[in-house]
């Protein structure tokens, strides 16, 4: 009898959380999963995995939705966001947006740094990402992002492989050489 009551109570709880989609689910478990690759504070120490710390909240929300919906098809993220409701996505985004970005860059190559600085300015990256490249709204922070990830991501955009991402950005890197992209990635990764 006692068990039955507990079971009923538990069932009721399950049902009520399942239907009240406007409330965030508990995100602590989810954040552990995210943090295993992206770093507990969102500053990634794993090659190829982007830092999420200090990213604009809207940018994180949008990307999380796009990944959940399958519009951004990332093998490493497959299934990770299945069934995660919008309120939870907003809570996760807020956590990383509030976490300070810390550059994970290695030693600086002064020549490469300077080249990247010049190209970034000429290419008007700061128009959308802001002159200090910290991003805003739907446009990501690129300062202090991992160098390997910046290069990977820019190559994707340049070759039109960035499916499900901004068509404006997709066209912004056409015609840049691999050396240009390497310089930009090095420069931005060194910034705060």
């Amino acid at each position: 009898m006692q068990y039955l009551r507990i079971a009923t109570l538990a069932l009721g709880l399950v049902c009520s959380t399942a239907t009240s989609l406007s409330f965030a689910q508990d995100i602590s478990t989810k954040l552990q999963v995210c943090g295993a690759c992206h770093g507990p504070d969102g500053n990634s120490k794993i090659a190829g995995t982007p830092s999420l710390a200090g990213q604009p909240k809207t940018f994180l929300e949008n990307q999380l939705v796009m990944i959940r919906e399958g519009m951004r098809d990332l093998p490493a993220m497959k299934g990770q966001l299945d069934g995660v409701n919008d309120a939870t996505i907003i809570a996760i985004a807020k956590f990383y947006a509030d976490s300070p970005a810390v550059s994970q860059a290695g030693p600086r190559n002064p020549a490469l740094f300077e080249k990247g600085q010049v190209i970034s300015k000429e290419a008007l990256c700061g128009t959308c990402h802001l002159p200090n490249y910290v991003g805003r709204d739907q446009m990501p922070r690129i300062a202090a992002q991992r160098e390997d990830y910046l290069l990977y991501s820019m190559r994707q955009f340049r070759s039109n492989q960035a499916i499900g991402r901004d068509t404006i950005m997709a066209a912004s890197l056409y015609g840049m050489s691999d050396d240009d992209l390497k310089a930009i990635a090095h420069y931005l990764s060194q910034l705060k």
Binding site: C37, G48, A76, N160, Q161
Partner: peptide, 20 residues
């Protein structure tokens, strides 16, 4: 977690590795 990180290094993009 294991599944996520096992595939963490980005897959080589189909055309990106080639010079622009």
């Amino acid at each position: 977690i294991l599944q996520g990180c096992a595939t963490a290094p980005p897959p080589a993009p189909k055309a990106a590795a080639a010079p622009a």
